[in-house]
Nucleic acid binder design. Structure first.
Lengths: 345, 345
DNA sequence: CTGTTAGCGCATTCAC
DNA sequence: GTGAATGCGCTAACAG
């Protein structure tokens, strides 16, 4: 009850506030909850003391006592990517008002790092977890299954979802862009992507490219793989060099991302390759650079923030269901994507 | 119908593991700590059980009992910004191995939102807090002072630092670029920045511009403020329009960020304004787009990741000092910046 | 090396 | 509307 502490914030507890206010600690606890039954006068008096002496309640103790962490874990391949950053923002906007704190992890496009992060984050007892993509290590899948919390996989449509899904078919998106290029008269279509399969969404876009090329009866597929994700602008430029050396006849290039597409475009300008006359370029993601560059980049737009928002909404309703002992049946939300016709095709 | 009781990792406690292993809970606790004194055989036996039944220790309980949260809070103006994302990565690389989890907050360039976030994050009892910039609300300063934890302000050199600082003078950087433009023969130099003072680092760059223009005896300053931060590429293009209308004689433009500089560059290409012959363009931040665009953008480079790494190192040594009851004296690390001469000047 | 005791600061549950 | 008792899962401190 008495402690030999100095005036640090850490030394302040509800008990001290209670003593100052002449009430019990329980009453202070109620004063700090918005929906507790307490007389307005008592609450006002307590809140006044709290703000005057700068008491900050201890969330660690709260979550320990209430067995609710108030955390949601979210894993993204890269924080430094406009698309995923938008998805994170979408989640934050939905979780913040609900009093949930996002615990962010950056997998750096590595499944083993994802596994490590899942293991570390699960120790924080998140109430739900949001993942990017539908491919995970067996160990990760097992941990997630044992965790017994709502899971949302995003940015993809996994064949065997762990639980909920908010995504779209990257394969279909890749194919759609090839069809668009074909409609615009292109017949020698190439693809530029990463050199590894770490970016599973990128690999699916490439698979969609390959399928569409087959379906359309185009003579051959021209794939340049270059650089390890996250793909950079400069890598696009270098990949263009390889592409033109190997398949000089190429008249359209589909890139795994707007970033590499932009790199291709800039390299074309340096070399004097006319875009789109001699070479059409298409990207993916509708990054700001795609809307702003000259000529403007044809690309595929996805509602990144919407993915985050929908994922958060599913988490919130799953958590709501859990309160009454129910389990929300796995839900899959298919987000639309759209070919955005601009000037590079 | 699966009910809450199964599949719950939370149902497992150290006590259960202890019973299975025929030891006390304390011994299990020691087996899970790397530096505890415990016989190798006992540890091996316990770890085997732990991994077989998939027990995940409860970090919430651990931090509650040990009075160490394992959290470091970090606030950035925007996650969707390569520069700050790099700083975050620098911190993560240093904190991860030290067993510290980063709690990220996005202030969206708003001081009041920063205040809210500080208040929310302080509830999690972070062991230290890393801020961006040196301007904070009075309430925020008070909370931080009361928190009694190491504080690092980054990306700036505050006049009245709260504690530690890892930054550079944005004012000097702005001035340095004006001097560079002057050396290259430009005399009608303009500045494009945000319309608000929310981006305090941007405001300082503008102040540096104004000072340099005065020092060099240039006739007038030409400042276009446009858009609210985070500044976008497109805003750069729109600002160029305003600039050329108001001061058609302008022969060089310094932009608050590479992003707006890129927007200016692209707009020049659309209008047929020759860069750098008719108009020189300089940015700030050395974003990837600056290195990759055509012509390549002259800019100011800062070691963003290094800022994060140094901030983390200071936090780690402050925490180390705290163990022995000491307080690390406030330290200010001045990071270098560099004018990167490229093709737009 | 291992066990025992005693909480950490709060919320839950029940009294009143 | 308010208070008292109780314990969440773990670790610090000490004992053996």
């Amino acid at each position: 009850m008495k402690r030999a502490e100095e005036g640090q914030a850490g030394a302040l507890t509800m008990q001290k506030i209670a003593e100052l206010a002449g009430v019990s600690a329980m009453t202070v606890s109620r004063a700090l909850k918005s929906d507790a039954s307490i007389s307005p006068e008592t609450r006002a008096r307590i809140l006044d003391i709290v703000s005057r002496i700068g008491y900050v309640p201890d969330a660690t103790a709260r979550m320990f006592a209430s067995r609710r962490s108030g955390f949601v874990a979210a894993l993204v391949p890269s924080l430094n990517n406009s698309n995923f950053a938008d998805t994170v923002r979408g989640m934050e906007e939905a979780f913040g008002p609900a009093g949930l704190q996002l615990l962010l992890g950056d997998t750096e496009y590595s499944l083993s790092r994802e596994e490590d992060l899942i293991s570390a984050l699960l120790q924080r007892r998140p109430e739900a977890i949001v993942l990017t993509g539908g491919v995970h290590t067996p160990a990760a899948r097992q941990m997630l299954a044992k965790a017994g919390i709502p899971i949302v996989e995003t940015w993809d449509l996994p064949k065997a979802p762990l639980d909920h899904v908010v995504g779209f078919s990257n394969e279909a998106a890749g194919a759609a862009m090839v069809h668009y290029l074909y409609e615009r008269g292109r017949r020698n279509i190439g693809f530029i992507g990463g050199a590894t399969n770490l970016d599973t969404r990128g690999s699916e876009r490439r698979a969609g490219y390959a399928r569409a090329v087959r379906e359309l009866g185009l003579s051959r597929s021209r794939v340049v793989t270059f650089g390890k994700p996250p793909v950079t602008m400069s890598q696009g430029g270098e990949a263009l060099d390889l592409m033109l050396k190997q398949w000089p006849e190429v008249d359209a290039i589909l890139c795994v991302s707007d970033l590499s597409a932009f790199g291709v475009l800039m390299e074309c300008q340096r070399r004097g390759v006319a875009v789109p006359q001699r070479l059409a370029i298409a990207g993916f993601g509708d990054f700001e650079v795609a809307r702003c560059c000259h000529p403007r980049l044809t690309t595929i737009a996805v509602d990144c923030q919407g993915i985050g928002r929908r994922a958060a909404e599913i988490v919130l309703s799953a958590l709501e269901a859990k309160k009454s002992g129910e389990v929300l049946p796995p839900e899959t939300v298919v987000m639309p994507f759209e070919v955005v016709a601009r000037e590079t095709v």
